[in-house]
Design a protein around this nucleic acid. Structure first.
Length: 230
DNA sequence: ACATTAACGATGA
DNA sequence: TCATCGTTAATGT
């Protein structure tokens, strides 16, 4: 069965497939498949076995947990163009987080056996996965620093600007279709605080607030504002 | 004090 | 009609 044009284009713009040999690509094309999820749907609940590595072809997903009393914490937002889930696949343990579609989304599924096979077959693929894990680690170190030392606007600036991390999220578009509620979850702030922080950032012309989305106007200043220590 | 939650009307898709 | 937004009031630590 031939791949859809959309999935083919997605693989072509991803960094790692171009480093594979033709026979490795052949197996990848054979094993990979695509599925769609409506906004708000739970793609995988916490605790389900990690049988796949994922690419976000379209839309946006988040990784979060829900406590017994119904409150949720978001650990990461993953925009279109990114690959994720290697941690749980490598450990071969149940997923410690839920994966939820924030918008209507399309995901590429790479089965665990294919993923493991590529790791063994291709040093450049292994290197891609190592780099990916390393950048994630760096992200969480910076996140902890940011959250302990900075005020709300800088926290929001950090979470938004990190969605443009070229290694982890290489093709994020400047309009982020995120409600202020979701941005609050990502930043660890209430919606009301998020709203105030966003309008401060908008006053400084770093971004523009629109209905159901924010438009990044000056990514460099947003990054500087997120990281500068005061 | 301060942030978070609750609650409200207004407004956009 | 429903989601989202901006604001104010109540609540909690």
């Amino acid at each position: 069965m031939p791949l859809s044009a959309e999935l083919t284009a997605f693989l072509e713009k991803s960094r790692w497939p171009s480093t594979l040999t033709e026979s490795q690509l052949e197996r990848l094309r054979h094993d990979i498949y695509e599925r769609s999820f409506p906004s708000g749907s739970i793609i995988f609940a916490r605790g389900t076995p990690a049988e796949h590595w994922f690419g976000v072809v379209d839309g946006m997903i988040k990784v979060d947990t829900v406590s017994p009393d119904g409150r949720s914490t978001t650990f990461a937002g993953v925009p279109a163009g990114a690959w994720f889930g290697e941690g749980a696949v490598l450990k071969n343990t149940p997923r410690p987080y839920s994966i939820v579609a924030i918008r209507d989304s399309k995901l590429a599924f790479v089965p665990r056996t294919t993923f493991e096979w590529l790791l063994q077959q291709s040093t450049s693929f292994s290197r891609f996965v190592i780099d990916q894990l390393n950048w994630r680690c760096g992200y969480y170190v910076a996140l902890i620093e940011n959250r302990r030392l900075r005020e709300a606007p800088a926290r929001v600036a950090f979470c938004l600007s990190e969605l443009f991390n070229p290694q982890l999220y290489p093709s994020t578009e400047s309009t982020l279709q995120l409600s202020q509620e979701e941005i609050g979850r990502l930043s660890g702030l209430s919606r009301q605080n998020t709203n105030r922080a966003l309008r401060e950032l908008a006053d400084a012309k770093m971004l523009a607030v629109e209905y159901g989305s924010v438009v990044i106007l000056d990514l460099q200043r947003l990054q500087e504002f997120a990281r500068q220590d005061e």
